[in-house]
């Protein structure tokens, strides 16, 4: 009888520890968001979002970080678009054209998963050396291309996970009606997966806008608005990074405020992607 009690006690103790572990994870998230908002919100103002840095900005004078916000949005949109143009065909191809070659497809997925693990600083260093090779200066375009490479595996695997769930009966049915494989891919599969693809786009966009290490080398930094692909551009993560390393309190406060802006953008993206993935779910053929 005693050993049974002992076992029960052991189970109880471990259940409490496990419960605590889960709670710690939730608390960590709450603490991160709380500490960023708590420190940054007082310094967020409309002029911060709507103005360019003015003279003496980096000594705590007036101005905002519109250059970094717009720069980041341009950069992330461009990179997401390019990665989509390259990534969507790949995910459709491995699920439709290579439908029967399971081993090959598994190998490709394996490779893509491995590529997902490559750190962004490596992409950044690579982008930088290619840039030097072609004699390019740091620019919006160079940053965009580097970030495209960085989010490409994420994009492909995210779309692939959705396309994978389409029943293969749909492929057989459309092919038997005489459609070509690419018509099946873009007209049938694409529409079936539209919600998942939106989520994949948002996921990649979030990655692109938040990454600092890959743009550190390639986009440079400027106080002007991005007007051309060939010019350097400010980005939000770097704006936070540079301002935080300043010894002046006002500039630091602005770094915290910029962190709030970036966090809010990321949170909005994640909420939208949750909503879209639910909303379109009901139109799907299962």
């Amino acid at each position: 009888m005693n050993i049974l009690k002992l076992r029960k006690a052991e189970e109880l103790i471990f259940r409490i520890i496990m419960f605590l572990a889960t709670t710690v994870i939730i608390l960590a998230l709450c603490m991160i968001i709380y500490s960023i908002l708590h420190k940054g919100l007082p310094s967020v103002s409309w002029s911060m979002i709507s103005q360019l840095p003015k003279g003496g900005f980096y000594f705590g004078k007036e101005g905002g970080i519109l250059n970094a916000i717009l720069g980041s949005v341009y950069l992330a949109s461009g990179a997401t678009l390019l990665a989509f143009v390259l990534g969507l065909p790949v995910s459709l191809y491995i699920n439709i054209h290579l439908h029967k070659r399971k081993k090959l497809v598994n190998g490709i997925r394996f490779m893509l998963d491995v590529m997902w693990g490559i750190p962004s600083i490596v992409y950044g260093a690579f982008g930088f050396s290619v840039m030097l090779f072609f004699g390019m200066r740091s620019s919006l375009l160079a940053g965009m291309l580097t970030v495209t490479l960085f989010i490409l595996p994420i994009m492909i695997r995210a779309i692939d996970e959705i396309v994978k769930t389409v029943p293969s009966g749909l492929l057989e049915a459309t092919l038997s009606l005489g459609s070509t494989k690419s018509e099946t891919a873009y007209r049938v599969y694409f529409r079936q997966c539209i919600s998942g693809i939106t989520t994949a786009l948002l996921l990649s966009f979030g990655r692109a806008i938040g990454d600092a290490a890959s743009v550190l080398f390639t986009t440079g930094y400027t106080d002007n608005l991005p007007t051309s692909l060939a010019k350097p551009t400010a980005t939000l993560p770097l704006a936070i990074f540079f301002q935080l390393s300043s010894p002046i309190e006002e500039v630091k406060a602005r770094a915290y405020a910029s962190a709030v802006i970036l966090t809010v953008i990321i949170l909005i993206i994640s909420i939208i992607s949750r909503i879209t993935s639910r909303k379109y779910q009901k139109n799907k053929i299962k």
């Binding site: 889960t22 994870i25 939730i26 960590a28 998230l29 603490m31 991160i32 500490s35 960023i36 420190k39 996921l203 979030g206 990655r207 806008i209 938040g210 990454d211 600092a212 290490a213 993560p237 936070i240 990074f241 935080l244 770094a255 915290y256 962190a259 970036l262 966090t263 990321i266 949170l267 993206i269 994640s270 949750r274």
Partner: peptide, 28 residues
């Protein structure tokens, strides 16, 4: 239900940019 709460928590934690983690590190 706990798993349903945890899924967004995991997603958001994974989505927070590393520079934000850095700011949090400096602050806390």
């Amino acid at each position: 239900i706990v798993l349903r709460i945890m899924h967004p928590v995991i997603d958001i934690l994974a989505g927070i940019p590393s520079v934000i983690y850095g700011v949090w590190g400096v602050l806390v």
